[in-house]
Design a protein around this nucleic acid. Structure first.
Length: 204
DNA sequence: TGCCAGGCCCTCTTTAGGGCCTT
């Protein structure tokens, strides 16, 4: 039932690389069941280091906001409870999975959730989009938003709607009654010239 | 917006280089 029960997740962080000491400062996660958002989780977290002006400007998150936020460890324990063992989706999942795994590793916890990438799937499904940034794809698919960008819950929500849209488009384009999570996940890895060949295997 | 990373993907490729995405 993976297709209809997933968690879409997004992190704001102090930078690009956990291996160079960057930490998470906010997480947003939405639970999608039967192609609808049914639950959500969001929290800032205190990285206990000052964030750069670039990150403050990029996210709108200030050092003052973070100084009042719970510690990363507390938030990660709550996040772990929220996501359970459900399959995970993120836009450019290699980024979010690195940070999730890095923070969980500090708690001696190893992720067992599957991960899929909405960016890789969108590149296969929408090759003619102007580019495959989350913001652009949301406009391309005419997904209604509240205008917030680069905040974790807003971005996770937009990625969730993009994911739901892609499932609907695949159903229509390839005449499939259901679109399993594994199809979406594997579609992101298929050579672009072999997308139709790959999809044909799922048609009955 | 930066330039500190890394996986993916294209091409003027594979003995490599550079753009795309994420913060």
């Amino acid at each position: 039932m993976g297709a209809c029960n997933i968690i879409v997740i997004d992190f704001e962080t102090t930078g690009l690389s956990p291996h160079y000491g960057d930490r998470t400062i906010e997480v947003g996660a939405v639970h999608v069941a039967n192609n609808r958002i049914v639950d959500q989780y969001q929290s800032l977290m205190n990285p206990e280091v000052r964030i750069s002006n670039f990150i403050a400007d990029y996210t709108g998150i200030s050092n003052k906001m973070l100084s009042k936020a719970p510690k990363i460890k507390e938030v990660m324990e709550q996040l772990r409870s929220f996501i359970g063992h459900l399959p995970l989706v993120a836009h450019n999942a290699s980024f979010d999975s690195r940070f999730l795994d890095s923070e969980m590793d500090r708690l001696n916890h190893k992720r067992d959730n599957e991960f899929a990438c909405s960016m890789l799937t969108a590149r296969r499904l929408y090759p003619d989009a102007p580019n495959h940034k989350l913001e652009t794809l949301v406009q391309y698919k005419r997904i209604v938003t509240d205008g917030t960008h680069h905040r974790a819950l807003a971005d996770a929500t937009m990625a969730a709607h993009l994911w739901i849209n892609m499932i609907a488009d695949i159903k229509e384009m390839y005449e499939l009654p259901e679109v399993p999570f594994t199809l979406m996940q594997r579609l992101g890895k298929v050579p672009k010239k072999k997308v139709d060949e790959f999809m044909a295997k799922f048609r009955t």
